[in-house]
Structure formats: C-alpha cells, structure tokens
Amino acid sequence: MSALASPLAAFKDGIGEFILEWLRKPEYWSSGSSDNQAMWQAYTPEVGAPEQLVQARILCETVCSQQSKIKGSDSYPDLAHMAATALGYLTWGVETQRNRYGLGDLGGWPLDLLQIWGKYVSDGHGANLDMWLKAHLGSVSDGMGFGYADALADADAWLIAKYMKEHPSGHSFSEAVKELFQQNQRQRIIRFYDERFGGDASNVSEAFLALSDGIDVGNTNFPITTELLCRAAHVDRMPTDPEARLLAQAYAAFIGNPI
C-alpha cells in the first residue's frame, strides 16, 4: 500500500481496523440472521465505499489469511471477541470519563454483564445473585457468558483502541499490541480497571446504572436500541437498579483482583 502512486496509499491508516475486521470473523460477523449478528453488523459496519477502501480491506484480509493460524490456539483465549470489541470503540469512541459509559462500551463489558445477567435469569433458579456472580463471573471454566476470556478481551480491546486513537497510523495496531503485551494478562486487566474506572468500584456502578436506565434516551439516531442489546444478550429485560449494582460490583471486584 506504500508503493509509489498506489491507489490504496490513502487507506494505510486503516490497516489496523482491517486486521481487526478479519480477526472478528465469522464469530462476530457472518451471513447469519441471529440477533447477535444483526447487532454487530449495525454496530460495527464495514463501509463499502469508495472502491479503493474495499480493495484495501480485501488486500489486508488476503495477507492475514496467509499467516500462521492464531485463532483457536493457546496464544490468546478469544481473539474474535477482543477484535469485535475494539472495533466498537474505534467506531463509536473510547470513553475515558471514569463513571460514565460511552457508545463504544456497548460491545464490551456492559454487553457481557447483560449476558451473564441473562444466564442468571434463565439458569440461576432463584439463587442469591451476589453469591451466584462470585461463583461464575470471571471463571475460566464456567463463566456463564462473562468468563475470564471475556474479561480479558474487554480489557485489551479498550487499551488497544485507546492507543490506536491516540497514535493513528498504519502501524498503530501492531504498536498497541507490542506495548500492551509487555504485561501479562492479569496486569492488563488491572491496568484497564485503573485507567478506565480509576480503580474505583463506584465508578463501575455509576456507569452501568446509567446504562441499565436505557440507551435510547438522547440517541435516536444510534443503530442499537436497548431492546436489541437485550436480545443479543438473550435476556428479556434490563436489570433493576439493585440488580445492576450487584452486577457492576461483582465485575469491579474481579477486574480489581483477577485470578
């Protein structure tokens, strides 16, 4: 793409996003008609114009497909999740106000909290919500929609997208990964907690409580509604304020001290 007079040169800064688009497929982008697929296609669309942009994306996908297989290996537990979540941030913004949620967050930790909430509603059988969350949220083997791999992917996605926003270039994704992976997984999750929420559980609660009140208010042109978000999380209602607070507190406790 850097070749002299290359018609694709103008799209070099998009290489990181093209790679993330490739990594998130097919788990978070396919021809399926599920609510989850519909949400991701509306939330992180792949722009189809101009033609040179499409060609640049295809070129990157071709190069990626020729590399050694990394998805499904032991090198990273859920690359597709991380990639899809990072694209949400790159598309809708990286929220840095510590006690607020942003539209870019919706494909990350809030959606995972709603997913584990949905599992509790369907499979909790009236168990104490606080104790049930302590037993499952962040679990390596039984995360009920919000396991360890999900928490890591959410943390890495925010940190990577934040770096890419601050250092836009064709190399920003690789630079972000190189910088981030100097720390181990536990350190990265704690770093996310510190940088995103100031290491304060009350900020997590405030952000999630605002979301549980509904994302539709003031966002009439946003392609994701509270109803679609719930359907993608397989739950028929948002949690009440007390339930949302317990969900947020359990999440904050885990990312503040991940196993």
Rank of each mutant, 00 (worst) to 15 (best):
V94R: 05
W109E: 12
Q67A: 11
L228V: 03
A10P: 11
V63W: 13
Q183R: 11
W22Y: 11
D130F: 02
L79C: 02
C230N: 08
L53K: 07
A84I: 04
V54F: 07
W40Y: 05
Q183H: 10
A86Q: 01
W29S: 14
G218Q: 10
G108P: 12
A157R: 06
Y251I: 06
G16E: 08
L229M: 12
Q182M: 08
V235Y: 09
G143P: 06
S31P: 08
A80E: 15
E46T: 10
K165S: 09
L228H: 04
P7D: 11
G199D: 07
L229V: 04
W109M: 05
D241R: 13
V121L: 13
N257T: 05
G124D: 15
G124W: 13
F173H: 12
N257Q: 09
N99M: 01
G102T: 07
N184C: 04
Q67H: 06
E243F: 09
S34F: 02
L87Y: 05
A38V: 04
F173G: 03
F208I: 02
S172N: 14
K178L: 06
K12T: 10
T240A: 15
V217S: 15
A155V: 08
A42T: 05
D150R: 14
D194K: 10
P223V: 05
L129S: 07
L103P: 07
K162R: 10
Y148T: 12
D142S: 15
W109R: 08
P223G: 09
D194V: 03
E179G: 13
M164P: 04
F208T: 00
A210Q: 12
D112F: 05
R98A: 06
F208R: 01
W158A: 06
G147T: 06
S139A: 10
R100D: 02
G102Y: 03
S31F: 11
A210Y: 04
L111S: 06
Q249V: 06
Q185H: 11
L20V: 10
Y28F: 14
G72Q: 07
W92C: 01
V140P: 01
F254G: 03
H234T: 12
A161V: 03
L137A: 11
L8M: 14
A233E: 00
A232M: 11
V177W: 05
H136L: 01
N36Q: 10
D13M: 01
S122D: 15
D213T: 13
V217H: 13
E51C: 12
A151H: 14
W117F: 12
P242G: 10
Q187R: 11
K134V: 02
R57S: 13
Q37M: 11
I190W: 00
Y43G: 01
H81T: 10
E206V: 05
N99V: 01
D154K: 05
S73C: 08
P258W: 13
D105R: 06
E195H: 00
K165R: 08
A253Q: 14
A201M: 07
H171Q: 06
E179P: 09
S6Q: 07
E51P: 07
F254Q: 08
G138R: 02
E179M: 07
A253H: 07
T225F: 01
T62D: 14
L90Y: 03
V121Q: 15
W22M: 03
A210I: 03
A253W: 05
D213K: 14
S169H: 07
D154T: 04
